[in-house]
Design a protein around this nucleic acid. Structure first.
Length: 712
DNA sequence: TAATGGACTTAGTATACCTTAC
DNA sequence: GTAAGGTATACTAAGTCCATTA
């Protein structure tokens, strides 16, 4: 059994690493990984090695592999983390099932002391806050205290579909008008300087600003840009400028670079002035009054003009995103409120009073023709209520998920093709947390898919793969053109169904040709009120966090170790939801810095240990009070260093594991915050360690209402 | 029933800002 | 005081899902 388990682990690890390698972004950093593994530093390490042997201290670099595995019984079961111990030479010693590392179990006294330390830390923050508030009040930044603490979650909700009764705001902040370039900054065509009209020049500056970006080398980008740029040119310019490759924007580009450099070099006073001006704008336009409460607006600035930057292979990249004028803007507010004024000499497109919607301002953008909105901040009542509701729906799903799973398993045997397809798709959504996958207009956006829009070319079936049967390999681009790659053994019936769905189809044909999101959601709605495909993602994410926290947290651990456990649980969810990020540009460097710190700490520790040994010897000889004290002092120093070293090592592990995984998205959108709040309360971890200020504001409702016994 | 429009959530990245180390 | 590094925030694209229209 053990051997089999080991093999399985090996495989998951393999598929995980393959997953990493498949992604283009990740590919770039492959070699760098090796470096962190030790090859880059090997020389120096070898020099240190003998020394360490002498000291007989065996420090190990720890790296963890994480992932999700799915059990046969059709229940999603997050896999416990595996870890691997590596020596400094980079060779693997052994691998074992993850057990939270014990960090010199703290005795009660120590634990108390640490708690006290954290409390002190908090104390440190608190007075500052009050100071800030005072300062704020003095500089007449009128922030009404009681409103900050408004507990909307204790109030009743409207049931008539109206979103508000009163709404007043100042309207949007428009993009600043175009400032023509100074005379000395020139544009060259075919090697000769050429003065452009203001309109053409503005669009040219958009391109110039992006010159360093890979985008500007792409054919589609250049084509789209050139086409739209020409529209802004005078007829004279049009006839002169006929070839983009003959355009030279470098002087413009240099100018902007110099400007941004100059901005960085500004004096303190100048910077302060800008900051104050921003603060003033925020105070004036950043808030609205909704039903007697001052609420923060999310995005009160109209998007400035520029070149459209789609994600992935977007057919519209490089197109001109035009400037939004007051005449394009619809204002939404109460009839009886003070209406926002358009700039002098202009008018709004429309002022309406629709309290069935939550937006304050809207306009239609010209790239896709879709509507953009100005809405409230996530900390607002209107967003918070919706968020809370979302998690309540997911909790209702928890209650009936067994029934639903039994149902879709049953449907795999249906006589009707459409039902079988629906059931298999739902199985994927449930098990792999895939998105619903709406149809998209071809040629309008990047070619990405979700579950219902999967095509034949996106999956491969393997009746047998290594020692596993019925393996499905997924490989497609999902939202934001992020690659989803996974291999999963499925039940025989699912496999047979998939084979059936693939019969007589071309690679570009739909896998589920009798299914779309509307059909699927209609079916889900019948199974549970308010159920849609995306509820499964929320449910599976939250339940995974709860399970993982239970599994990974051990009571005797220190706070940093607990935080590592929390991050790991969070990470399990991020992996499930395929939330990836490009590895930070400075990743390797910062990792090396951390390693240097660890090395230093180790040296300090070994010195401290030697000193302790010496002190002990001395004490044995003298039996004096002074020498006894010295032993104590040295012992404490060793302890402190050990602790610091552990923390550094934990930090390194955390960061390494997080290299290309983004935790933020799941934390903000998928994890019921009450689970985290309950965990924090249960283990006396300061909430600041898992939620920053903004997150605490967003989740104020959960922080206030969840107790340590909260169950999702 | 399919297409379209509208409102809202979810998403990754660029940049501003803050902290730390020197 | 300043540069480096890390974190928070701003930004806006890209999804989901529901309602309406053709």
């Amino acid at each position: 059994k053990e051997q089999k388990k080991d093999k399985e682990r090996e495989k998951v690890k393999h598929s995980n690493s393959e997953h990493r390698e498949h992604s283009d972004k990740k590919h770039r950093d492959k070699d760098k990984v090796k470096n962190f593994d030790g090859s880059g530093e090997r020389h120096r390490e070898k020099q240190d090695k003998d020394k360490r042997r002498e000291e007989k201290v065996c420090f190990l670099k720890i790296r963890f592999f994480s992932g999700i595995v799915f059990e046969e019984n059709n229940q999603i079961k997050p896999r416990p983390f595996l870890n691997m111990l590596k020596t400094y030479d980079g060779c693997i010693l052994f691998r074992f099932e993850y057990k939270p590392k014990k960090i010199k179990t703290e005795n009660g006294k120590k634990l108390k002391k640490r708690k006290q330390e954290y409390e002190d830390e908090e104390e440190d923050i608190k007075p500052k806050k009050t100071k800030d508030k005072k300062a704020g009040a003095e500089s007449k930044k009128v922030k009404k205290e009681p409103e900050e603490k408004w507990k909307w979650w204790e109030e009743e909700r409207a049931t008539d579909g109206s979103k508000w009764r009163f709404l007043e705001h100042k309207g949007p902040v428009l993009a600043p008008p175009y400032e023509p370039l100074p005379g000395h900054v020139r544009f060259f065509y075919d090697g000769k300087p050429m003065k452009l009209s203001a309109a053409a020049e503005e669009v040219a500056t958009f391109f110039a600003k992006m010159l360093d970006h890979e985008y500007t080398t792409k054919d589609i980008f250049r084509k789209n840009f050139y086409k739209d740029w020409r529209k802004e040119m005078t007829s004279e310019e049009k006839s002169k400028i006929t070839d983009l490759t003959k355009c030279n924007f470098t002087e413009m580009s240099e100018y902007f670079k110099a400007q941004s450099e100059a901005r960085k070099q500004m004096s303190k006073e100048e910077k302060l002035k800008i900051r104050e001006e921003n603060e003033r704008i925020l105070q004036e336009y950043g808030f609205c009054v909704m039903d007697n409460h001052k609420e923060r607006i999310g995005n009160f600035r109209i998007e400035p003009p520029g070149l459209f930057r789609g994600r992935g292979d977007h057919p519209k990249m490089g197109m001109l995103k035009r400037r939004i004028r007051p005449e394009d803007i619809i204002i939404n507010c109460s009839k009886d409120s003070k209406h926002p004024k358009p700039p002098q000499g202009t008018r709004w497109k429309e002022v309406r009073h629709d309290n069935k919607v939550t937006w304050l301002v809207s306009w239609t953008e010209n790239i896709q023709g879709s509507i953009k909105y100005i809405m409230l901040n996530p900390s607002s009542r209107i967003k918070g209520e919706k968020d809370w509701q979302k998690y309540e729906t997911a909790r209702r799903l928890k209650k009936c998920v067994d029934r639903l799973r039994a149902q879709y398993r049953d449907d795999w045997k249906s006589k009707e093709m459409r039902i079988r397809q629906r059931a298999v798709a739902l199985y994927f959504i449930d098990k792999l947390a895939l998105r619903a996958g709406n149809e998209k207009e071809e040629g309008e956006t990047a070619d990405t898919v979700g579950c219902c829009s999967l095509r034949v070319e996106h999956i491969k079936l393997y009746p047998k793969m290594d020692d596993q049967e019925y393996v499905v390999e997924f490989d497609f681009l999902g939202k934001d053109s992020i690659r989803y790659y996974n291999k999963m053994p499925v039940e025989k019936r699912v496999f047979k169904n998939l084979q059936l769905f693939l019969e007589n189809k071309q690679p570009e044909d739909d896998l589920f040709d009798r299914l779309n999101t509307s059909i699927l959601n209609k079916h889900l709605q019948e199974l549970m009120d308010g159920l849609t495909a995306k509820v499964f993602r929320t449910y599976n994410a939250s339940i995974t966090l709860q399970q993982q926290l239970k599994e990974l947290t051990s009571p005797e651990e220190s706070i940093p170790a607990k935080i590592l456990s929390y991050n790991r649980a969070n990470r399990a969810v991020a992996i499930l939801c395929n939330h990836q990020r490009a590895p930070p540009k400075t990743f390797e460097k910062s990792m090396q810095n951390l390693q240097t710190k660890i090395d230093e700490k180790q040296k300090q520790l070994s010195t401290a240990r030697k000193q302790l040994k010496g002190a002990k010897t001395e004490h044995k000889a003298s039996h004096g009070d002074g020498s006894k004290k010295m032993v104590e002092v040295k012992r404490k120093a060793v302890q402190r260093l050990e602790e610091q070293l552990m923390n550094l090592q934990m930090q390194a592990t955390d960061r390494e594991e997080n290299k290309q995984i983004a935790l933020g998205t799941s934390k903000l959108n998928y994890l019921d915050p009450r689970i985290s709040v309950a965990w924090v309360k249960k283990w006396d971890v300061p909430i600041e360690k898992i939620y920053n200020k903004t997150q605490r504001e967003k989740f104020a409702w959960a922080i206030d209402m969840a107790e340590e016994d909260y169950e999702f």
